[in-house]
């Protein structure tokens, strides 16, 4: 089965996945740069298009690096 997988991946039928941390970093950079050009928070779709990814996979990558820090910002500021 290893061969089948390799064939499918080499054929470009399956996207080779990058590490979640790598994706999360790209998401953050893209989000910040879009924030600058749009002058507002970008939507997930805007980030997804820039990175050629699905919105759902972006959410999963963000979870991996933990971005639940908006808490302190809102409550304790």
């Amino acid at each position: 089965t290893g061969e089948v997988k390799r064939f499918l991946r080499d054929d470009g039928m399956i996207k080779v996945s990058r590490s979640l941390k790598e994706i999360a970093n790209k998401v953050r950079i893209t989000k910040d740069s879009l924030n600058g050009t749009l002058n507002r928070e970008p939507t997930l779709e805007e980030i997804a298009q820039e990175l050629n990814m699905e919105r759902e996979d972006i959410v999963m990558a963000l979870e991996a690096v933990g971005e639940v820090e908006s808490l302190q910002k809102t409550i304790y500021q």
């Binding site: 699905e54 919105r55 759902e56 996979d57 959410v59 999963m60 979870e63 991996a64």
Partner: peptide, 13 residues
Amino acid sequence: EGFARVAVAAFLT
């Protein structure tokens, strides 16, 4: 489809 795929993946982690 994307939701289903990511939900299973999140459980699998």
